[in-house]
Amino acid sequence: MYSLYAENENVKKENERLQHEHVSMNETLQARAKLIDQLKSDLDKLNDEYKKQNVLVQRLSELLASCPDLQLENERLKLENGQLRYNASLDYSMGIAEENVKLKLENKVLKVQNDALCGKLISDSDKKLA
């Protein structure tokens, strides 16, 4: 009788442990499902951006097709781009993400400076015309 009681207690403890493990696994699965959804969303955004850039590249390529010197430069840049993409895929690390953030900030600063210079040029042009 005692061994049945002890076995019953062991089974209850194992059941509780398994229930906790089940809850933990469900939480992990939910968190990973959210991460997958976020990654899918990010991928969709990147694909949209890629399509936009591809249209721009196609249009620029059409414009470059009429000039042999620009065609050679374009081919050189395509090769360089391929090499950079290959190297980036080999050397990818967290440092790239940090560098990306820095470059985005620098890009914003340069856009502001560019807008300010354009405004100054327009202002100077207006003054000369007046």
Rank of each mutant, 00 (worst) to 15 (best):
I96A: 04
L72A: 15
H20F: 09
V101Q: 12
A33K: 13
S89M: 08
L43E: 13
M25L: 15
L56C: 12
E27A: 14
E62G: 01
L60P: 04
C67E: 12
R32N: 13
N81D: 04
Q83F: 07
E99Q: 10
L90K: 15
K51W: 03
D69G: 06
E75H: 08
C67K: 12
P68F: 03
A88I: 03
V23G: 06
V57Y: 04
Q19H: 09
L72M: 13
V55L: 12
M94L: 10
E27Q: 15
A65N: 01
R76K: 09
Q19A: 07
N47A: 12
L70T: 02
D48H: 05
S24G: 14
K40I: 05
H20C: 07
V57Q: 06
Y50D: 06
A65S: 08
E73C: 11
E62H: 01
Q30G: 04
N81Q: 10
E49Q: 08
S89K: 06
H20A: 11
C67H: 14
Q53S: 13
N100P: 02
S93T: 06
K52E: 01
N81E: 05
Q58W: 03
M94Y: 09
N54T: 08
Y92S: 06
Q58C: 05
E75G: 02
L56G: 02
L90P: 00
D48E: 14
E99N: 07
K45N: 13
Y92K: 04
L29K: 10
D44H: 05
Q71S: 07
Q19V: 05
Y86C: 00
I96Y: 10
V23K: 13
I36E: 07
K34H: 11
H22K: 12
L77S: 00
D37Q: 08
L35Q: 12
R32K: 15
G95I: 03
N26D: 14
